[in-house]
Design a protein around this nucleic acid. Structure first.
Lengths: 117, 117
DNA sequence: ACTATATATGAACAATTGTTCATATATTAA
DNA sequence: TTAATATATGAACAATTGTTCATATATAGT
């Protein structure tokens, strides 16, 4: 008796595999998703966002608040800025950072809910 | 005239800083949050989760579907398993993986919404 | 123009992370 | 027991990433 190319259960035919793929978001979208989550995947950045959730802050205040160097902070702010998760405004010598929009808040909240169980 | 220790605007007093800190989640929670998002911060893992959202799959099917080596996949499955984002069940020689709970689905969905704008 | 203050950035370094390769373990069938 | 199949894992390596240090740019005050 000829062996089926689909062992009893749970081995996909290529037709099934194609169907499954169709039900997944496009590759490109998944890469963007990973990139988005990368922003939240570092504790320094999470702490920065967590502070900006409360209120707008300038760089030195933020650095003092979190206990990190101005340089390290500035590098991270640039990364968050490029990802459009934060925005800034200049006030003389000072630059004030805040969250870019409510999406950031909602992603943050969602994660918090999960972590708190 | 004595200089104030609070420059005109946007420099916090230590009392203000303490108030701000109180309104942030505890440090420990923020580290856990970053760790959670780390799981979603790699495109391979996102693709794995994305497939398991559709249906339960065994290791070899998943590897074939995503076009990655069995070894690389197995390593990533272990990471996701440890983070309790996926669960598994043994069916003879085969091990079937699926999402651990609806939380994973809701985090995934939230991120997708943001990426799609 | 010079000094002080606030922020940004390039380069080097250390640490973390994902993949590969080889091999181990587990289950089933002969 | 031996062979075949499915999955797991340790070690090595390459790539990525976050921090530090030094320095650059920008603004305001004297």
């Amino acid at each position: 008796m000829m062996k089926e190319n689909i062992p009893e259960f749970l081995h996909l035919t290529s037709a099934q595999a194609r169907e499954l793929s169709k039900r997944m978001p496009p590759e490109e979208t998944l890469y963007e998703l990973a990139d988005l989550y990368k922003m939240f995947a570092d504790s320094t950045r999470v702490r920065i966002l967590s502070a900006l959730r409360v209120q707008e802050l300038c760089v030195l205040d933020l650095a003092a608040l979190l206990g990190i160097s101005q340089s390290a902070l500035s590098h991270q702010l640039r990364i968050l800025k490029q990802a459009k998760l934060i925005k800034y405004r200049r006030e003389g010598k000072i630059v004030c950072y805040s969250l870019a929009d409510e999406h950031v808040e909602s992603i943050f909240k969602q994660g918090l809910d999960h972590v708190r169980e």
